[in-house]
Design a protein around this nucleic acid. Structure first.
Lengths: 299, 299
DNA sequence: TAGTTAGTGTAAGTCTCGCTTACAGTATGT
DNA sequence: ACATACTGTAAGCGAGACTTACACTAACTA
């Protein structure tokens, strides 16, 4: 069969479905909806003119032809996947990778991304520094760094990571955490945890249409990691963005108090050395980071 | 590597390019433009973060990584392609296939399609009949048939093949064949070869904006294959459509005399037994026929 | 056997990304 | 130096992969 006419996407969908006997499960592993799988399999069956699945029963059974096809595709794709994996084990994906990040994303989100990264590229040794000085000048230039705000930097390659937006969070131990999405006015009875040099709280209340807070308790910290630490400890209510607190929310250390968000004043950027000196390993990290960021945004 | 992230199209493009060391050639084999290949390879190199080709020299040389990748992908795709081919060799693609066609397309175009078909499905024995009686009723119902005009038929599955359009052709031996796209008025000095029960010639002259021919010689035949036979023999000028005369034009047996075409009054349809009794082999022939028809239309 | 849950089928509409077009740039041959 | 043959790349288009939404069917539960 001519290469140009092999329905690759359809075969991939078929393989996933055949392995589980369950379109929904298959769809999840490929990161699409069940309808997409159904569509592709229909296409493939139509192309071959024969049935690949026995659909009377559940879980779906492969027909003879389906069984045969599964062996072929699995073998083929495995071969390709291994080859691709091997390429990633080479020198290009070995050695050291110096990573610098601003504390906000760096503290929590980036560490989890790096966790996935090192398991995917076991031969890369990552050295990470978080530093609020996002200008690269005073450091030995890093292989990969995340900066906040303006990113133009002498001779470094810049790609947009994305923009976050803020919403109030607090410890589940505070009484107000009980009612889902309480009235913003009620939140004024708690300590509002601020970060120095930001106006996130006031912008948020403005967006709510609530009068600026007058006599509420406030406390100021130097950096988002500290405000969140305080929030977790039950000190009061802090503003947070999704990437930094996604894990906290999921594991119940923090509770989100509103649907309403205000955008960060600046986006995050990734900077790397220019194309000539860009390490493949850094590019791979960039891809992963961007993907994970999008993923969180989508939720 | 997770299946969902294998860039299959990019790998296919890479494989084609790596095999020839020539993007243009690779593009041809995949039936796309060189830019498409270039784009996909760029994507792949970018995804992996490393160069696959050494581009200083021509033909392009694979890098080490490229070499490795080629082995993997070639192996993988070969495996899949073989598996797919095997599936086509099974009972589903064996046995007899009865094909019925109206003479127009059947005479020339369909035979060439069938030629390709049998080389692709060697185990299928094709029995073809051309018959102007495109109603199926009096025959043992065929596995695959091409009809002209209205296609509604008791219980058969119908798919549109396409609509042709007509233009004048003649033998290269006629003097008028010398000048490319002569004045339609000059053509009136030759015998106009007609097919019974069609008004193609008069519709064509109407489309030209030329007065209906008065005292020109005419000759009538029963069926397009006869008109074309006469045209090839130098009898005069006949009307023909692209599928039927594509080979004649390419091989110089006929010359096209005008850019202007008039559409056929009806489209061609393919009919097969309904889904339950549709043979996979017939479906495959249908796919091939439709593809080849589109291809000619595109030229 | 009726209700419930988990899954598949499928039509309609959306949007991505693979592709073409068009042109500039770069090797190789004469 | 010119011609030829190929590659690189930006801009824009369109097919088709995908999502959404709902109908439907199988398999459990009681």
């Amino acid at each position: 069969m001519k290469r140009s006419r092999i329905p690759l996407h359809a075969l991939r969908a078929f393989e996933a479905a055949a392995e589980t006997g369950n379109l929904t499960r298959a769809a999840e592993t490929l990161g699409v909806t069940h309808a997409a799988i159904s569509y592709q399999i229909r296409l493939l069956e139509d192309h071959l003119g024969l049935a690949l699945f026995e659909r009377r029963m559940r879980p779906m059974q492969l027909t003879d032809a389906g069984q045969r096809l599964l062996e072929g595709t699995r073998g083929g794709f495995d071969r390709i996947a291994h080859c691709l994996d091997d390429l990633k084990e080479e020198e290009d994906y070995a050695g050291e990778l110096s990573v610098v990040s601003v504390p906000g994303l760096g503290g929590n989100w980036l560490t989890s991304v790096l966790g996935e990264y090192v398991s995917q590229f076991p031969k890369v040794t990552v050295r990470m520094i978080t530093s609020p000085w996002h200008r690269q000048t005073e450091f030995e230039p890093s292989d990969f760094s995340i900066v906040y705000g303006s990113a133009e930097q002498s001779g470094r390659r810049v790609t947009l990571l994305g923009q976050t937006s803020f919403f109030p969070v607090c410890s589940p131990s505070l009484p107000i955490a009980g009612n889902r999405y309480p009235d913003p006015r009620d939140m004024l009875n708690y300590t509002l945890i601020h970060e120095y040099n930001t106006d996130t709280w006031s912008r948020w209340y403005m967006a709510c249409g609530v009068e600026p807070f007058a006599g509420t308790r406030r406390i100021y910290f130097d950096g988002a990691h500290l405000t969140l630490h305080a929030a977790r400890a039950g000190t009061g209510i802090a503003m947070a963005d999704l990437p930094t607190v996604a894990a906290d929310l999921k594991e119940g250390r923090l509770v989100r108090l509103s649907d309403l968000t205000v955008p960060a004043t600046h986006p995050y950027y990734i900077t790397t050395p220019p194309l000539g000196r860009l390490k493949p390993a850094a590019k791979a990290l960039e891809d992963l980071a961007v993907r994970r960021f999008r993923q969180i945004e989508a939720e």
